[in-house]
Protein backbone atom coordinates (compact mmCIF):
# COMPACT_ATOMS: atom_id res chain seq x y z
CA UNK A 1 0.00 0.00 0.00
CA UNK A 2 1.62 3.29 -0.99
CA UNK A 3 1.30 6.24 1.32
CA UNK A 4 -1.49 7.90 -0.67
CA UNK A 5 -3.84 4.95 -0.62
CA UNK A 6 -2.80 4.44 3.00
CA UNK A 7 -4.22 7.91 3.75
CA UNK A 8 -7.51 6.96 2.13
CA UNK A 9 -7.68 3.65 4.02
CA UNK A 10 -6.81 5.48 7.22
CA UNK A 11 -9.64 7.98 6.77
CA UNK A 12 -12.32 5.55 5.71
CA UNK A 13 -11.61 2.52 7.92
CA UNK A 14 -8.76 2.72 10.40
CA UNK A 15 -9.42 6.16 11.83
CA UNK A 16 -12.92 6.72 10.56
CA UNK A 17 -13.77 10.15 12.03
CA UNK A 18 -17.26 9.11 13.12
CA UNK A 19 -17.05 5.47 14.17
CA UNK A 20 -13.48 5.36 15.49
CA UNK A 21 -12.43 8.87 16.48
CA UNK A 22 -15.99 9.92 17.40
CA UNK A 23 -15.30 13.43 16.15
CA UNK A 24 -17.85 15.87 14.74
CA UNK A 25 -20.70 14.37 16.73
CA UNK A 26 -22.87 17.50 16.51
CA UNK A 27 -23.51 17.38 12.73
CA UNK A 28 -23.47 13.56 12.84
CA UNK A 29 -26.34 13.37 15.29
CA UNK A 30 -28.28 16.39 14.12
CA UNK A 31 -28.30 16.17 10.33
CA UNK A 32 -28.66 12.46 9.65
CA UNK A 33 -32.45 12.39 9.68
CA UNK A 34 -32.37 10.99 6.14
CA UNK A 35 -29.81 9.39 3.86
CA UNK A 36 -29.75 12.35 1.47
CA UNK A 37 -29.15 14.79 4.33
CA UNK A 38 -26.28 12.56 5.45
CA UNK A 39 -24.73 12.58 1.97
CA UNK A 40 -25.19 16.36 1.69
CA UNK A 41 -23.62 17.10 5.06
CA UNK A 42 -20.81 14.60 4.49
CA UNK A 43 -19.90 15.94 1.07
CA UNK A 44 -20.06 19.61 2.16
CA UNK A 45 -17.72 18.83 5.04
CA UNK A 46 -15.47 16.76 2.78
CA UNK A 47 -15.10 19.60 0.27
CA UNK A 48 -14.20 22.07 3.02
CA UNK A 49 -11.83 19.55 4.57
CA UNK A 50 -9.96 18.85 1.33
CA UNK A 51 -9.63 22.52 0.42
CA UNK A 52 -8.60 23.63 3.91
CA UNK A 53 -6.08 20.78 4.22
CA UNK A 54 -4.65 21.84 0.87
CA UNK A 55 -4.31 25.51 1.78
CA UNK A 56 -3.11 24.95 5.33
CA UNK A 57 -0.49 22.49 4.17
CA UNK A 58 0.60 25.00 1.53
CA UNK A 59 0.94 27.75 4.14
CA UNK A 60 2.32 25.53 6.91
CA UNK A 61 5.77 27.14 6.83
CA UNK A 62 4.43 30.69 6.71
CA UNK A 63 1.83 30.58 9.49
CA UNK A 64 3.53 31.44 12.81
CA UNK A 65 2.97 28.82 15.47
CA UNK A 66 1.46 31.24 17.99
CA UNK A 67 -1.46 32.29 15.77
CA UNK A 68 -2.04 29.05 13.91
CA UNK A 69 -5.52 28.48 15.37
CA UNK A 70 -6.96 31.85 14.24
CA UNK A 71 -5.28 31.34 10.89
CA UNK A 72 -6.83 27.88 10.47
CA UNK A 73 -10.23 29.22 11.45
CA UNK A 74 -10.03 32.04 8.90
CA UNK A 75 -9.10 29.61 6.15
CA UNK A 76 -11.83 27.12 7.09
CA UNK A 77 -14.43 29.87 7.47
CA UNK A 78 -13.67 31.21 3.99
CA UNK A 79 -14.22 27.81 2.42
CA UNK A 80 -17.36 27.23 4.45
CA UNK A 81 -18.78 30.54 3.24
CA UNK A 82 -18.11 29.52 -0.35
CA UNK A 83 -19.73 26.11 0.14
CA UNK A 84 -22.69 27.75 1.83
CA UNK A 85 -23.33 30.11 -1.08
CA UNK A 86 -22.91 27.29 -3.59
CA UNK A 87 -25.42 25.11 -1.73
CA UNK A 88 -27.85 28.00 -1.39
CA UNK A 89 -27.56 28.72 -5.12
CA UNK A 90 -27.68 25.22 -6.59
CA UNK A 91 -29.37 22.89 -4.05
CA UNK A 92 -31.70 25.14 -2.02
CA UNK A 93 -33.67 22.13 -0.72
CA UNK A 94 -30.58 20.64 0.91
CA UNK A 95 -29.53 24.09 2.09
CA UNK A 96 -32.85 24.50 3.88
CA UNK A 97 -32.83 21.09 5.48
CA UNK A 98 -29.23 21.39 6.77
CA UNK A 99 -29.87 24.92 8.05
CA UNK A 100 -27.55 26.14 10.78
CA UNK A 101 -25.28 23.10 10.44
CA UNK A 102 -23.67 24.44 7.26
CA UNK A 103 -22.11 27.53 8.93
CA UNK A 104 -21.25 25.30 11.86
CA UNK A 105 -18.85 23.32 9.64
CA UNK A 106 -16.40 26.10 10.58
CA UNK A 107 -16.08 24.69 14.08
CA UNK A 108 -16.28 21.04 13.02
CA UNK A 109 -13.59 19.34 15.04
CA UNK A 110 -12.66 16.92 12.25
CA UNK A 111 -11.54 19.82 10.07
CA UNK A 112 -9.62 21.61 12.79
CA UNK A 113 -8.29 18.29 14.04
CA UNK A 114 -6.87 17.31 10.66
CA UNK A 115 -5.45 20.81 10.17
CA UNK A 116 -3.71 20.71 13.51
CA UNK A 117 -2.56 17.12 13.54
CA UNK A 118 -1.88 16.44 9.88
CA UNK A 119 -2.03 19.23 7.32
CA UNK A 120 0.16 21.63 9.30
CA UNK A 121 2.95 19.04 9.42
CA UNK A 122 2.79 17.19 6.12
CA UNK A 123 3.30 17.92 2.40
CA UNK A 124 0.51 19.23 0.25
CA UNK A 125 -0.46 16.17 -1.78
CA UNK A 126 -0.52 13.89 1.25
CA UNK A 127 -2.68 16.40 3.11
CA UNK A 128 -5.12 16.51 0.22
CA UNK A 129 -5.35 12.72 0.24
CA UNK A 130 -5.81 12.81 4.01
CA UNK A 131 -8.68 15.25 3.48
CA UNK A 132 -10.20 13.00 0.81
CA UNK A 133 -9.91 9.94 3.06
CA UNK A 134 -11.33 11.63 6.14
CA UNK A 135 -14.07 13.37 4.11
CA UNK A 136 -15.01 10.11 2.47
CA UNK A 137 -15.05 8.31 5.81
CA UNK A 138 -17.28 11.01 7.27
CA UNK A 139 -19.61 10.95 4.26
CA UNK A 140 -19.93 7.15 4.32
CA UNK A 141 -20.60 7.16 8.06
CA UNK A 142 -23.22 9.90 7.84
CA UNK A 143 -24.90 8.23 4.89
CA UNK A 144 -25.01 4.92 6.74
CA UNK A 145 -26.52 6.49 9.85
CA UNK A 146 -28.95 8.53 7.76
CA UNK A 147 -29.98 5.47 5.74
CA UNK A 148 -30.72 3.34 8.82
CA UNK A 149 -32.64 6.17 10.45
CA UNK A 150 -34.62 6.91 7.31
CA UNK A 151 -35.51 3.25 6.69
CA UNK A 152 -36.66 2.65 10.28
CA UNK A 153 -38.15 6.07 10.91
CA UNK A 154 -39.91 6.70 7.61
CA UNK A 155 -39.77 3.45 5.63
CA UNK A 156 -37.95 5.17 2.76
CA UNK A 157 -34.40 5.41 1.42
CA UNK A 158 -33.27 8.54 -0.43
CA UNK A 159 -36.94 9.44 -0.57
CA UNK A 160 -38.05 6.19 -2.27
CA UNK A 161 -40.40 3.95 -0.34
CA UNK A 162 -38.68 0.61 0.19
CA UNK A 163 -40.75 -0.87 2.99
CA UNK A 164 -44.38 -1.83 2.34
CA UNK A 165 -47.11 0.67 3.17
CA UNK A 166 -48.29 -1.54 6.01
CA UNK A 167 -45.04 -0.77 7.85
CA UNK A 168 -45.65 1.74 10.63
CA UNK A 169 -42.62 4.05 10.83
CA UNK A 170 -40.91 4.10 14.21
CA UNK A 171 -40.87 7.87 14.47
CA UNK A 172 -38.28 8.01 17.25
CA UNK A 173 -35.56 7.10 14.75
CA UNK A 174 -35.86 10.37 12.87
CA UNK A 175 -35.86 12.28 16.15
CA UNK A 176 -32.83 13.03 18.30
CA UNK A 177 -32.81 9.82 20.41
CA UNK A 178 -32.77 7.68 17.25
CA UNK A 179 -29.48 9.28 16.20
CA UNK A 180 -27.85 8.08 19.41
CA UNK A 181 -29.28 4.55 19.09
CA UNK A 182 -28.11 4.14 15.50
CA UNK A 183 -24.68 5.67 16.09
CA UNK A 184 -24.09 3.42 19.09
CA UNK A 185 -25.17 0.26 17.31
CA UNK A 186 -23.17 1.01 14.15
CA UNK A 187 -20.06 1.83 16.23
CA UNK A 188 -20.45 -1.42 18.14
CA UNK A 189 -20.82 -3.41 14.91
CA UNK A 190 -17.76 -1.66 13.46
CA UNK A 191 -15.72 -2.50 16.57
CA UNK A 192 -16.77 -6.14 16.47
CA UNK A 193 -15.86 -6.40 12.81
CA UNK A 194 -12.47 -4.86 13.53
CA UNK A 195 -11.80 -7.26 16.39
CA UNK A 196 -12.79 -10.24 14.27
CA UNK A 197 -10.63 -9.27 11.31
CA UNK A 198 -7.70 -8.53 13.61
CA UNK A 199 -8.06 -11.92 15.27
CA UNK A 200 -8.21 -13.62 11.88
CA UNK A 201 -5.08 -11.90 10.61
CA UNK A 202 -3.29 -12.83 13.80
CA UNK A 203 -2.78 -9.34 15.16
CA UNK A 204 -2.99 -8.72 18.85
CA UNK A 205 -6.24 -7.57 20.41
CA UNK A 206 -5.63 -6.20 23.83
CA UNK A 207 -8.51 -5.60 26.18
CA UNK A 208 -7.58 -2.45 28.04
CA UNK A 209 -8.28 -1.62 31.61
CA UNK A 210 -9.49 1.92 31.25
CA UNK A 211 -8.90 2.83 34.90
CA UNK A 212 -5.46 2.86 36.51
CA UNK A 213 -6.34 0.34 39.16
CA UNK A 214 -7.84 -2.11 36.70
CA UNK A 215 -11.37 -3.24 36.21
CA UNK A 216 -11.90 -4.19 39.85
CA UNK A 217 -11.81 -0.60 41.04
CA UNK A 218 -13.84 0.83 38.20
CA UNK A 219 -17.32 2.08 39.04
CA UNK A 220 -18.57 1.36 35.54
CA UNK A 221 -18.67 -2.39 35.88
CA UNK A 222 -21.05 -2.61 32.97
CA UNK A 223 -18.36 -2.29 30.31
CA UNK A 224 -16.98 -5.70 31.19
CA UNK A 225 -13.50 -4.55 30.25
CA UNK A 226 -14.38 -4.37 26.58
CA UNK A 227 -12.21 -1.39 25.74
CA UNK A 228 -9.68 -2.73 23.29
CA UNK A 229 -6.73 -1.80 21.15
CA UNK A 230 -5.52 -3.60 18.07
CA UNK A 231 -1.80 -4.08 17.72
CA UNK A 232 0.06 -2.89 14.64
CA UNK A 233 2.32 -5.89 14.30
CA UNK A 234 1.37 -8.94 12.29
CA UNK A 235 3.05 -11.14 14.87
CA UNK A 236 0.95 -13.84 16.40
CA UNK A 237 1.00 -12.38 19.88
CA UNK A 238 -2.73 -12.28 20.37
CA UNK A 239 -3.60 -12.03 24.02
CA UNK A 240 -7.08 -12.57 25.27
CA UNK A 241 -7.58 -10.68 28.49
CA UNK A 242 -11.33 -10.56 28.50
CA UNK A 243 -11.53 -13.24 31.16
CA UNK A 244 -9.72 -10.96 33.55
CA UNK A 245 -12.67 -8.63 33.75
Amino acid sequence: MNKYTERLYNGVIKENPTFVLLLGMCPTLATTTSASNGVGMGLSTAVVLILSNFLISLLRKIIPDGVRMPAFIVIVASFVTMVQFLLQGYVPALYDSLGIYIPLIVVNCIILGRAESYASKNPVLLSVFDGIGMGLGFTIALTAIGAVREILGAGTLFGFRILPDSYTPIAIFIMAPGAFFVLAVLTAVMNQVKINTAKKSGRSVQILDCSEMGCASCSNSACGGRVFSIGESEKNNYTEMEGKA
Binding site: I170, A171, I172
Partner: peptide, 8 residues
Protein backbone atom coordinates in the same frame (compact mmCIF):
# COMPACT_ATOMS: atom_id res chain seq x y z
CA UNK B 1 -41.58 6.20 26.41
CA UNK B 2 -39.96 4.78 23.28
CA UNK B 3 -43.38 3.57 22.11
CA UNK B 4 -45.08 6.78 23.18
CA UNK B 5 -42.68 8.90 21.12
CA UNK B 6 -42.71 6.54 18.14
CA UNK B 7 -46.39 5.70 17.90
CA UNK B 8 -48.05 8.65 19.61
Amino acid sequence: CFLLISFT
